[in-house]
Write a protein that binds this DNA or RNA. Sequence first.
DNA 1: TAAACAATTAGGCAATTATCTAAATATCTA
DNA 2: TAGATATTTAGATAATTGCCTAATTGTTTA
Lengths: 85, 85
Amino acid sequence: MNQVLRALNDPSRRRMLELLREKDLTAGELAAHFEMSKPSVSHHLDLLRQAELVVSVKKGQFVYYSINTSVLEDLMFWLVTLKKN
Amino acid sequence: MNQVLRALNDPSRRRMLELLREKDLTAGELAAHFEMSKPSVSHHLDLLRQAELVVSVKKGQFVYYSINTSVLEDLMFWLVTLKKN
DNA sequence: TAAACAATTAGGCAATTATCTAAATATCTA
DNA sequence: TAGATATTTAGATAATTGCCTAATTGTTTA
């Protein structure tokens, strides 16, 4: 949960997840949505991958990123528990 | 949501919320659960208060902290949305 | 096979964060 | 009212984060 929260603690990375919710994208396609440099995008994607919030697959010279929401479950459970009395 | 995620992105602060889930506590009672100095605890509580995850009320020389989970709702909604589709 | 393209890695820098000790503020009580 | 207690504020420092440019790696194609 630590790494998940760390990854979520940045607006750009949250936006990346929203974009990947729509469909899988390459690193370059993702980068096109942001003002920052490609290496910076790559760095953010690395943090998302460390948290296992995304999975990447290389196809030729492209790297496709997909969202993986299963790791959100612990966090959601924790949040719900916090709300219960 | 930004400030909430920032506040949640720290194990000590999450532990503080878990403790406050059980019952309201003073700054000193909270501090007793941690190894760090009281000013550091005070600083963490300030971040939680900025995120409105806690509310504080002064009673005499004590400051009582209570949890406020209502600000978690936006985050929870966002997480659920991310999982849909 | 050389040039172009996609992406990551490396290294550096500024801003932010977490922590500490010392000092200040506010309240209680002998 | 003086001293003790509870808490926060101030100021310093080390670690982390986010960003950049330059360099590297891997793949495609003319």
